[in-house]
Design a protein around this nucleic acid. Structure first.
Lengths: 198, 198
DNA sequence: TTGAAACGGAACGAAGTGTTCCGTTCCGTA
DNA sequence: TACGGAACGGAACACTTCGTTCCGTTTCAA
């Protein structure tokens, strides 16, 4: 057998899938194979179909989100914990991985469980930091701000993309502390989670 | 002839195209016809092809951008002018109209001229307000922030979308004044204008 | 040496989409 | 009122794209 090559390809395929589908969630599967330097069959050997690959990618992102939240929660200072959480999530591009891919597949029950847990962890970190935030901000605002951050991209240059995102997370974190109450009704959870509709 | 119906349809088609293509720049032309309550031929009677419709839409957005900038420039107070400009551009969803559609068609020479003029007007407004901004912010940052704002959307509810965007423009405007220098090299013009590549 | 595991990529079929075309409907004019 | 052309709706056509299958080839542990 070709066990060495197989292991390398499994990694390459996941990495390629992340790059390709983050750039365009509707990209064809052949683009993933090409980017991975692999034939299409190498892909179908590992995943029954496109949807399963997308699901795996998204679920990985969700787990990464949870991991970031748990790690940040260990930080004793409330604001530092919140800041570490936001920066970690943006750094790992978790938001694109989860939110932009949701809707391209039918989620598993386990994913829903994890999604609930993720949101609970995020809310907990938010609550700890709430005292240092401007009035009227709600957790859904943070989701929205993360989504805005994910809109920052320099195509074909992932390194520069995260560099710029770091710039704007700083901007957003500053904005969460300064200023008075924001206008208009804050976003409802449903207005922010619409991609997870079954 | 059916001149009355024709006039109504011309309007309906443009409005439908805006709605449909803002929701998804890759939407099929049949979706536009459907949304407008019109047959496909009504569309092809007015535009030689899909690309021309997209181009018209985008150019309209560009002109709207210029109009907003010119109108805002009349405001005597420097910061008020800048704020009116940003709010106007976001309100009209000009950014989606221009940036999200760029690349789906080959631009005309006139569009390039207008794009240059638009950027000059924006820079002028920025320069007037620069004194009241945090250190190190550049015009390309504003482009990026507008792009982030355009990422805010509540699908199927345009009214709520602009309401939320108003919330976050306020947030961004506050952020532009508060805080110190932002980390990392600021975005280069090329990193922000990549969609206009010929 | 051998055969099972893994591979590359052509081929296939279904789905989607831009454009054309034609028969039909409407209405200003005579 | 009757006519004729402008405008219409949408089926049909001709691609293109993309997910998936299939098969001949390559590699390597036994």
């Amino acid at each position: 057998m070709r066990t060495r090559e197989a292991a390398r390809n499994s990694e390459a395929i996941l990495a390629a899938a992340r790059e390709v589908f983050l750039a365009d969630a509707r990209a064809p599967i052949s683009a993933v194979a090409e980017r991975a330097g692999v034939g299409i069959s190498a892909l179908y050997r590992r995943y029954p179909g496109k949807e399963d690959l997308l699901r795996t990618l998204c679920h990985d992102g969700l787990r990464r989100f949870i991991a970031e939240a748990e790690q940040a929660a260990a930080e004793p200072d409330d604001w530092a914990a919140f800041e570490a959480f936001l920066r970690g999530v943006v750094e790992a591009d978790v938001h694109s991985l989860t939110v932009h891919l949701a809707g391209t597949f039918t989620p598993t029950a386990e994913m829903n469980t994890d999604a609930v847990r993720a949101s609970e962890l995020g809310d907990a970190l938010f609550d700890r930091a709430r005292g240092r935030m401007r009035a009227g901000v709600v957790p859904a605002d943070v989701t929205m701000l993360l989504e805005m951050c994910a809109a920052v991209r320099v195509p074909g240059d992932p390194a520069r993309t995260t560099e710029l995102r770091r710039r704007y997370v700083t901007f957003l974190l500053d904005g969460l502390r300064a200023g008075g109450e924001l206008p208009g009704p804050p976003p409802a959870e449903a207005e922010v989670n619409w991609r997870w509709r079954a």
